[in-house]
Design a protein around this nucleic acid. Structure first.
Length: 346
DNA sequence: CCGATTTGACCCTC
DNA sequence: GAGGGTCAAATCGG
């Protein structure tokens, strides 16, 4: 696998280091419970820093040759330029495309969430998870009271993003939508921007929470499936979702989230400001902690593709800072110390 | 007019 | 062969 270029690597490390420093400052700010304003600025800077780093990595992934992200794009029926392959010029292309789709079904990581929608608010409900989805099908499912809707990323054609999701009302409780995600977003969406705005809105909302907003269940656990991966190497769901688990009844690995006991400051700090972002912060911190665990547990020996899956499986509910992460075969190149160090701060 | 949704048909997996 | 997932033409809506 290609390695991160020296310059890029330095830039990424620089960004991440800065993020670490800012996080450190934030930590100091939080301890004596200083002004929320300062915290807000620091948080924004931290997020910005991480987003920059992610963007750098993502750019590299987009143009890399063998990284999982770019590989997904290259494997897709659509060219990098975003134009569908000409079916007319190739009599096998349609067939081939379809076969690719079914191949990918097995390969793509998948996970599920339960999303509760309270009272009719006109909100998009579970569909409004920050990504742009386009419905491409609906089916009545045997034994289910409600049809299952199929969505794929709006940027499938333009960016070759293969992320899809299935949404189905729960039989037991029609107010709950079961959302099954498959594949990670490889597209670049307006999401980060929107999230920042959203972030501010939520900040206000947190002080005045309405029952009408879409509620993501906070009960622990979430189901995550990676059919083709060795269980030992499967991704850690908490990596991606601070959310709800759905009981898994198949053989595929199920992960249950524990409270982030090792993330002390998050645990002990609950201000109106942090609160709305808790899922994100908590997710992020948890991610780092568990990334650390992952590396330790796996002695840095997991395969690059598995590793990338673990890193990059996005959540559609939180703005996963790791959505676009992509590593070289040698994670040490990315300065493991950063991750080890950072985990201490969360 | 263009993008999103609907829906029947097709294909794959089990 | 049944059931689930995707395609693509038709339709809808802004």
């Amino acid at each position: 696998m290609e390695k991160i270029g020296t310059l890029e690597c330095k830039s990424v490390i620089s960004e991440l280091t800065q993020g670490r420093e800012l996080a450190n400052q934030l930590k100091n700010q939080l301890h004596p419970a200083k002004s929320h304003e300062t915290c807000a600025i620091l948080v924004e800077n931290i997020l910005s820093s991480y987003e920059n780093a992610i963007s750098l990595l993502n750019c590299r992934a987009m143009f890399g040759e063998t990284s999982p992200v770019s590989a997904a794009i290259l494997e897709s029926p659509y060219s990098l330029a975003g134009t569908p392959t000409s079916e007319g010029s190739n009599p096998f292309s349609k067939d081939q495309n379809q076969r690719d789709v079914f191949k990918k079904r097995k390969i793509l990581p998948k996970w599920s969430e339960e999303v509760r929608v309270c009272s009719g608010t006109g909100l998009e409900g579970p569909l409004d998870d920050g990504y742009n989805w386009r419905k491409y099908g609906q089916k009545d499912i045997l034994g289910a009271n409600f049809p299952r809707a199929y969505y794929r990323c709006t940027h499938r054609h333009t960016q070759g993003c293969l992320a899809t999701k299935q949404v189905q009302k729960s039989d037991e409780d029609p107010s709950i939508f079961e959302v099954n995600y498959r594949g990670r977003h490889t597209c670049i969406q307006e999401r980060l921007k929107l999230n920042k705005e959203d972030y501010n809105v939520k900040e206000e909302d947190s002080n005045n929470r309405h029952a009408e907003e879409m509620v993501i269940s906070n009960e622990p656990g979430i189901k995550l499936e990676t059919p083709d991966l060795n269980p030992k190497e499967e991704m850690d769901p908490s990596f991606s979702f601070p959310l709800t688990p759905i009981v898994s009844d198949d053989v595929e690995t199920e992960f249950l989230l524990e409270p982030a006991k090792d993330c002390n400051f998050m645990e002990s700090y609950t201000s109106p400001f942090i609160s709305p972002a808790t899922s994100e912060c908590n997710y992020f911190s948890k991610s780092l902690c568990q990334m650390n665990d992952f590396w330790v547990d796996h002695n840095l020996q997991s395969s690059e593709s598995d590793f990338a899956d673990i890193i990059s499986t996005p959540t559609s509910v939180t703005n996963s800072p790791f959505s676009y992460w992509d590593f070289t075969a040698d994670p040490l190149e990315l300065d493991l110390n950063f991750l080890l160090d950072t985990s201490k701060y969360f």
